[in-house]
């Protein structure tokens, strides 16, 4: 009798553990990023890059070019903070993965800000070198983001970012802005749109 009871409890325990595992895996799958950050920053940076390129073509001063970046990046960061606060309030779930992603991109953003502003204002390097340096940071951020979100193709984007950074370091020039803008469109905005479509599909499937 005791043996039967023991066997029964073993089966129940196995069942219970498998149910727990399933629930935990399912809960962890909560969408942590719908790609809007990539689209948002990608669009703003592309617009700023094209404007900056035109400013160089039309011989507008370096100070004005610096102001363009300072004003656009600072206001974009403030606006993002406001949007993010609202989104967080409406979020049904907060995950560790989401927190990790926020930390990663906030840290990367600060690194880019330092490289972009302090780096060039100090005269440590030519302003045109900002783009390959930022590409290196973006490559790392994409690699880690893909791992956190378990999206392999997102991680694979690091190859393009790093290859681009090498090319931009080897062949710097005024064209660097346009090359970087093209990289932003291909490896940031388009992936953002794909992630957005993916999250919409997942939400639809969950609703069924």
């Amino acid at each position: 009798m005791t043996d039967i009871a023991n066997n029964l409890s073993t089966i129940k325990a196995e069942e219970e553990i498998s149910v727990i595992k399933k629930i935990m895996e399912d809960s962890k799958k909560a969408i942590v990023d719908n790609g809007w950050h990539y689209i948002y920053w990608g669009s703003i940076v592309t617009a700023a890059l094209i404007t900056n390129y035109l400013m160089v073509v039309y011989n507008i001063s370096m100070n004005s070019q610096g102001m363009l970046w300072f004003i656009s990046m600072t206001s974009a960061a403030i606006l993002e903070g406001i949007i993010e606060r609202k989104r967080e309030k409406h979020a049904k779930v907060k995950t560790f993965a989401g927190r990790l992603l926020n930390t990663l991109w906030s840290g990367s953003g600060i690194c880019m800000f330092i490289l972009g502003f302090a780096g060039t204002l100090s005269g440590a390097y030519n302003a045109i070198m900002i783009f390959p340096l930022i590409s290196i940071i973006l490559g790392s951020a994409y690699l880690i983001s893909g791992v956190i979100q378990q999206v392999k193709w997102l991680s694979a984007l690091c190859i393009f970012w790093w290859t681009g950074s090498i090319l931009l370091l080897l062949y710097p020039g005024i064209h660097s802005m346009l090359v970087f803008a093209a990289m932003i469109v291909c490896f940031q905005i388009i992936p953002g749109v794909l992630l957005f479509a993916k999250s919409k599909r997942e939400l639809k499937l969950r609703a069924v």
């Binding site: 149910v19 727990i20 629930i23 935990m24 895996e25 809960s27 779930v93 907060k94 969950r206």
Partner: peptide, 23 residues
Amino acid sequence: RTAIMAVLISVDEAEFTFIREKI
């Protein structure tokens, strides 16, 4: 209750409706 705990141990914080959907 086991299911609720399994959901909450997997996330930082969850709304009532999220837990309801999951279990």
